[in-house]
């Protein structure tokens, strides 16, 4: 009998999922709110993504240099870094940062609206809070994550370039020519698709946690916590699953 709550919960999650898709494509569009949320998503995570991606580029470059130079393949550094950044590091870092930043934000925001009956207030005035609050946020994170990933890739590569330039005096053109020649369109597209899934997962999980939070102030904390932890967990799961599928085309 212990399975029952789990099954009920997963049914609930599935219905939430279904509702998002139904309203995203059938209900009157919320482009105004989506735009606002897109801006919020970008605005909230821009600095963090910049900072972490840059540092990741620097650190990764510095750490992989010794092992490459031990067999005289230092010139492979740009291609190694670019593949690592674009295939894995960029999406993963952006995903995790956004899961932390946006997940807690969305989770807490919706949960506190739920607790203070603001969502109910929208509901009883017939204002369709689900599409206004949830669909717009999920759409925004789904659309914005790929953009943020592209940005993070660029920043990480820049960080890597600055490191390489500092140590080896490699020129800008040479570095990015090497990078460009070792990246395939498959790498880029798969990373963007992955980012789209990351974005959807973050938006979906956080909204679900917030929208269905318990009443009371502890509910807000719990929702924010659930949003972040589960989003991060799912980012790794999606990363693994996507890897398997992408390998089919490679």
């Amino acid at each position: 009998m212990k399975f029952k709550p789990l099954l009920l919960r997963s049914a609930d999650i599935y219905q939430f999922f279904q509702r998002i898709f139904k309203q995203a494509f059938h209900a009157p569009s919320e482009w105004r709110e989506v735009l606002k949320q897109c801006f919020a998503v970008g605005n909230r995570s821009f600095f963090l993504v910049t900072f972490t991606a840059f540092l990741a580029g620097v650190v990764f470059t510095r750490q992989s240099r010794p092992s490459l130079s031990s067999f005289g393949a230092e010139s492979w550094l740009p291609s190694l870094v670019s593949q690592a950044v674009i295939r894995s590091l960029g999406p993963l870092i952006t995903g995790l940062i956004c899961a932390g930043k946006l997940g807690s934000n969305i989770g807490a925001e919706l949960a506190s609206m739920k607790v203070t009956e603001q969502i109910d207030a929208m509901e009883v005035s017939g204002s369709r809070p689900f599409s206004f609050l949830v669909v717009s946020r999920v759409t925004a994170t789904t659309l914005m994550l790929p953009l943020l990933v592209v940005y993070a890739d660029c920043v990480a590569l820049l960080g890597s370039f600055i490191t390489v330039n500092f140590i080896n005096n490699t020129g800008f053109k040479l570095y990015f020519n090497t990078v460009a020649s070792h990246i395939t369109y498959l790498d880029i597209f798969s990373s963007l698709i992955k980012a789209t899934f990351f974005g959807f997962a973050i938006g979906f999980i956080s909204s679900y946690a917030g929208y269905n939070s318990d009443n009371g102030t502890t509910g807000v904390g719990k929702a924010a916590n659930t949003a972040v932890v589960i989003s991060m967990l799912f980012i790794f799961i999606i990363d693994l699953v996507m890897l398997q599928f992408i390998n089919l085309f490679r």
Partner: peptide
């Protein structure tokens, strides 16, 4: 609503 539920 009891807590007036203004959109803050």
């Amino acid at each position: 609503f009891q807590g007036s539920a203004l959109y803050d």
